[in-house]
Amino acid sequence: MTRFVAPDPWHALRGFTRARIALGRTGHGLPTDALLAFELSHAKARDAVHQPFEIEPLRAALNAEGLATLDAHSAAADRAQYLRRPDLGRRLSRESRAALEQARADAPELTFVVADGLSAFAVAHHALPVLVAARAKLSGWRIGPVVLARQARVALGDEIGEVLGAAIVAVLIGERPGLSSPDSLGIYLTYGPRVGRTDAERNCISNVRPEGLGYEHAAHKLHYLLTQAKRLSLTGVALKDESDVLDAPGVALASERP
């Protein structure tokens, strides 16, 4: 703090959080550096919402990891319509539905959907490492091609999973940007995906990014929830995330116990 800024007595707490606390004051206002930092974060959040989903670099990276891909587009024609009409982002366009029906082969146990959501930055930065870490834990699972979805809301995964005949769909999607997290990734799991599923029938792993929930920890939680969803034939409020218990020595998933 400079001599022009009156410090807050609890300034030391800033070492424990990225939240904007104890910024001090100059007169009745914020210090200039704090105000400029806020405006920069606000601009990054706005940019995250409008940033186009650059699919081709992600497709190339997934293919290099041996992961096949399919494309999908919601019924929202463009970003402006997507933001005005959330309902259109939850359903496939007629052309995408027809293409996925044509591409359907053997029904997979699990289909991953990578969707832009409200932050294409999140998908570009975090989807690949999460998928690689998760796949390493899912030996023996029949996993379908990764579906890359534009102008997508979470529920679009329900229709994609239904069309492809997947038992479970996992949607990796850019979450609503915050002023300290413009690139936060969310993972939503739905057992028996179909149009009309509600949020109460999903499980969510949120804030996946190096500054939040790290890739390996997210993959650990994802593996736990997928294994239990498969065992119990359900997701949602009836499926509790007890994955952290598995960090204790000698604890194994129910499906791994003798």
Rank of each mutant, 00 (worst) to 15 (best):
161 G>I: 03
232 L>P: 04
198 T>S: 15
6 A>S: 13
225 L>V: 04
117 G>H: 03
33 D>F: 09
5 V>T: 14
241 D>E: 11
206 S>E: 09
188 Y>T: 01
102 Q>N: 14
183 D>S: 11
110 L>A: 09
103 A>E: 02
90 R>C: 13
211 E>Q: 14
74 S>W: 00
124 A>M: 08
142 R>H: 14
189 L>C: 10
95 E>H: 10
57 P>G: 06
104 R>I: 03
159 E>G: 06
30 L>A: 13
80 A>N: 15
141 W>A: 07
52 P>L: 01
48 A>C: 04
138 L>D: 00
203 N>C: 08
80 A>F: 13
193 P>Q: 11
6 A>E: 14
240 K>R: 14
220 H>S: 06
85 R>C: 13
8 D>Y: 10
13 L>P: 04
152 A>C: 06
162 E>Y: 02
91 R>E: 14
99 A>P: 05
42 H>T: 06
175 E>A: 07
70 L>V: 08
189 L>S: 10
78 D>Q: 11
143 I>L: 05
60 A>T: 15
201 E>P: 01
238 A>N: 12
229 A>V: 04
197 R>I: 05
223 H>A: 13
173 I>P: 01
12 A>M: 15
7 P>A: 12
156 L>C: 06
38 F>E: 15
71 D>Q: 10
135 R>E: 06
17 T>L: 09
55 I>M: 02
2 T>M: 03
26 T>Y: 02
192 G>W: 00
227 T>Y: 00
253 L>D: 01
174 G>Y: 09
183 D>P: 06
82 Y>I: 01
91 R>W: 03
218 A>H: 03
125 H>I: 11
27 G>I: 06
54 E>W: 00
120 A>Y: 00
204 C>F: 07
27 G>P: 01
235 T>V: 00
258 P>A: 12
126 H>P: 09
195 V>M: 11
71 D>L: 11
120 A>M: 10
77 A>N: 13
257 R>C: 09
16 F>Y: 14
51 Q>W: 09
23 L>R: 14
95 E>A: 15
109 E>K: 00
106 D>V: 15
205 I>K: 02
